[in-house]
Design a protein around this nucleic acid. Structure first.
Lengths: 332, 332
DNA sequence: AACCACAATGCAAACGATTGCATTGCATAG
DNA sequence: CTATGCAATGCAATCGTTTGCATTGTGGTT
């Protein structure tokens, strides 16, 4: 295995100094067109690539962002959650667009120290944190350091860090309002309100019911993020009470709920109407196709990446709330 | 913003040389226990982290693997495919276990030059390539370089690179055999056989039918990787021919097919039995729960990571075929 | 008492690219 | 013909860590 080429090799081949090669390769205006072209040709011919480690070592920037998933342990939400993965995909796209690579961290449990090490060890210039987990102090701890980071989640006045997320209150409101407009009156919200984002959705839900003077007809149910729990909780609900509308806190929960409803012989949406939240790609292909509240993850990812880059560059980043969108399909 | 600490700072604080700090931090046996403990304490107290760029610059290793997704353009397979994303998740886990970080590349279209740049630019020590795409020459081109890489896909005698994948022939065989054993006789294979993995599954399917002397009762259908195409192709099939068993080349296709069957009033599995392939997490929660051929992605990811590390270390890596497993649920 | 082995630590040269500051060459102005 | 300015290029220090080799100190052996 022949040793990889260096700037010095190219410089020798081109008969110029290393600095000239360096400048030529980055198209510095200091270098004449003729030299620049010659250097480029030689580099190309020898399949030369700058050593990104040496470069980032010298420049102080790694041009890399680390993604870390901060799930609530016990929430049932797992890395294979289609919504999360979709978001990661969009983050990767946007990071690439901005000239950054994406480092993918997998921590079974969010660990502020380990996360900080990415930045402190200069492996990444900034952090994209997905989710607020259930240990607020670890994010607060991170905010105390000089690590640039942005969180996907629910904005609150007390957050010490910038967040990007959907206006969940509005999303919950839209879902409930939609079912009420469809003539449903006994609505149940299905979701785990210990989670800040879900809590906000529930608040929107409540608000819609209150405005319609139907405050009596709702109940919230502790269900986590996975399909299975949606299924189980719905089965339990069916045994316990009457309802004709189900506002689910995520599409996966809605899918579980629909399974449970169908296996009890309920017709959707005639007997019970259902809404989801997220608009994951599957939801349009299920049968019946799921009515849901779309979160614009592409736009969210763009804001996250741009916000963290701004923070890296020492600018101030502010919270962003994306507008949710009602997507009406066949479950309502 | 105070300047980050360096080895030299810690050395000064501890009253020793930089080299001693370096060795103490990596627990070299050259350093006495007393010194080692003192250095560790001071580093801890000052929240010191080695600069990973300088380190990797000096050692020549970046301790990073790049994942690149090599989809066939036009296959309908997208990055949000739950199977692919699940595999990426497992790769991340295993890489972390082996002390490697994972760089997440997003190329709309696989690009050998750009992919090679990860290794040539020393950003990553090796490549984990998911899928063989439909341009075999680009992988062959990569094999010509000195880049260590492993591919998830179908092993073939002509491959110039190590692959890890499921024994797809066996998988297709298991699915067909299972439906035959259930008393189904008119089987259709639903999948795009231009794709090497799918072709192998189809060959297994054919083999099972031949053994059962039912060679006349099958047809293969061009369908790509997404749910929608499974749905459309099945609708077309229903109009064109009679069948009572459907062997689908992936779980997503099976989900689409089931939607189409149900919307035509077919009962599953009485009228038509269906099998999937992959065993994505959703398949156990759909209704009816999907009978499928499981690909052991966790084990596959372990093999991929270990194989690429072996290649990086100059050892020889060989192809690996994982045993598929029939998971019987309610669609058969 | 001289010697040796060995453990613990220090010294200094790399690794490869970047960049501020010289330096060169050449055209144009005085 | 010399001075001046500018464009193009070269020189060399620098980033923070690792590591082979040199050095010091200590105790044991003859």
């Amino acid at each position: 295995m022949k040793r990889a080429k260096t700037l010095a090799d190219i410089a020798r081949l081109a008969g110029v100094a290393e600095s000239t090669v360096s400048r030529a390769l980055k198209n510095s205006p200091l270098i004449s067109d003729a030299t620049r072209a010659r250097v480029h040709a030689i580099a190309e011919a020898h399949n030369f690539h700058l050593d990104s480690r040496a470069r980032s070592f010298k420049t102080g920037r790694s041009q890399t962002l680390a993604v870390v998933i901060n799930l609530s342990p016990g929430s049932g939400q797992v890395l294979s959650d289609p919504f999360l993965l979709g978001l990661v995909g969009c983050l990767a796209d946007e990071a690439a667009l901005q000239g950054y690579d994406l480092l993918f961290s997998t921590q079974r449990q969010f660990n502020a120290h380990q996360t900080l090490a990415y930045v402190a060890g200069r492996r990444a210039d900034g952090l994209l944190i997905i989710g607020q987990g259930n240990a607020p102090e670890s994010l607060a701890q991170l905010a105390g350091q000089q690590a640039p980071f942005v969180v996907w989640g629910q904005a609150t006045p007390t957050n010490l860090y910038p967040t990007v997320g959907t206006d969940n209150v509005q999303g919950g409101y839209l879902a409930a309002q939609h079912l009420l407009a469809r003539g449903k009156s006994a609505l149940v919200f299905l979701g785990d309100t210990r989670h800040p984002e879900i809590l906000a959705r529930y608040q929107g839900f409540q608000q819609a019911l209150t405005e319609a003077a139907r405050s009596e007809a709702h109940a919230d149910v502790q269900a986590a993020f996975c399909m299975q729990s949606g299924q189980e909780e719905t089965a339990r609900l069916l045994a316990e009470c009457q309802f004709d509308g189900l506002v689910c806190s995520s599409d996966l929960i809605a899918m579980g709920a629909i399974n449970a409803l169908q296996s009890q012989g309920k017709h959707i949406p005639q007997d019970v109407a259902v809404t989801g939240f997220d608009n994951i790609s599957l939801s349009q292909f299920m049968s019946p196709a799921l009515t849901t509240i779309e979160q614009d993850i592409r736009q969210g990812a763009q804001h996250m990446v741009q916000a963290v880059i701004a923070t890296i560059e020492g600018k101030e980043a502010h919270n962003i709330e994306l507008a949710p969108k009602l997507v009406v399909r066949n479950t309502s």
